[in-house]
Computed example of a mutant assay.
Amino acid sequence: MPENAFFADRRPGEIGLALFLNAGDPPLSVLPDLLRALDESEVDCVELAVPFPDSITDGPVIRRSADRALADGTDLAEVLKCLDTVRGELRHTKIALLADWSHTVRPLGLAEFVATAADAAVDGLLVHGLPPRVRWAYREAAAAAGMPIVATCYPKSAQAVLAESAATASAYLYLVAHYGRTGSAPPDGFAQLGAVIDDLRTRTSAPIAVGFGVRGPSEVAALARAGADAAVVGSAAVAVVERAAEDRRDVVADLAEFVAMLKSINPTTPRSAK
């Protein structure tokens, strides 16, 4: 794998860990220290969203978080300025910047957005709500800028969609565990994802990360047994941020404790080793 590859530092038999957070919640003044702490805790990736309103794919926890960040005036320029303060400091954690097409990317312009991100302390891009008509232009712009892409798909996506997502992913392939809103879990659990992960593995060399409904170490271990390269934890992590603000606690310490809890079950029997 390239030196800057996502989830490349995993030990044998270990599953990678990604946390989703809205930039600006907690406030951007806290973000540099928070990223340093997550790096120290060996979180592999932070999916850092430029907040946007009224997401139909997000549950109430993440939507409240985005609303708080937007109320604080958080925008793309401020997020990238904040990330620049930790440029070169993070030895383990990669930053995947998530931006919404309608709210952030289209007003700036696709080419300008990609070029701006490529100049920032960002390791990969995930564009939410990208229209099919601009997908090719997005891939070309990212490739020209040397910016890895996070592609997404669902277990029940059409074969053409699975193939396209697998071919597009250059940072990692995000397999969304089921149709629904963030925070909800697949009704049949994660074990049934094994066959889909096996199929995707034949289509891409990118790591395969799985999210939606990952709340604790038991779900992380289940995804390891299903063959995933990484688990993505979103609503559960954002809920820690929310509770810390409500209780006036140290969010950096609380998230570090949460990460330690996520890693407390060692998935020693990944499916590939059985």
Rank of each mutant, 00 (worst) to 15 (best):
G194P: 01
H178F: 12
V220W: 06
F212S: 07
P186V: 09
T202H: 13
K156M: 14
A151P: 02
A231F: 01
A171M: 15
A226L: 08
G180T: 11
A231D: 09
K156Y: 14
D199I: 00
H178E: 15
G211C: 10
A166N: 02
D198F: 01
D229V: 06
G180N: 05
A167Y: 01
D198P: 01
P155A: 12
P186L: 06
E164L: 04
A151W: 00
P186G: 03
Y172A: 07
A230N: 09
T168D: 03
Q159T: 05
S157K: 15
T168Q: 03
I149M: 03
D199S: 11
V220F: 07
A230V: 12
S157W: 13
P217S: 11
R225Q: 05
G183R: 07
Y179E: 15
C153P: 10
V150P: 08
T182I: 14
S165M: 02
S184V: 06
A206M: 04
G213Y: 10
L162F: 09
R201C: 02
Y154N: 15
P217Q: 09
L162Q: 12
A163T: 15
S184Y: 09
A222M: 04
L175A: 11
A185W: 02
G194W: 01
A160V: 06
A163I: 09
S157I: 12
I208V: 03
A167Q: 11
T202K: 14
D199E: 10
Y154K: 15
A206V: 05
A158P: 00
V214K: 10
A230E: 06
S218C: 10
R225P: 00
K156V: 13
A228C: 13
Y174H: 14
A228T: 07
P155R: 12
L173A: 04
G183I: 07
V176G: 08
V214M: 10
D229E: 06
Y172C: 06
D188L: 12
I197W: 03
C153D: 15
A191F: 03
A209C: 12
A151L: 03
V232E: 04
G216T: 14
A206F: 01
A224N: 11
T204I: 01
A177Y: 01
Y174V: 11
Y172K: 03
Y154L: 15
D198G: 08
Y179R: 15
S205G: 11
L200A: 01
D229K: 07
L175I: 09
R203I: 13
S184M: 13
G213N: 02
Y174E: 08
A222D: 12
A185Q: 07
A226D: 08
Y174P: 12
T168M: 00
A206E: 04
C153A: 15
S157Q: 06
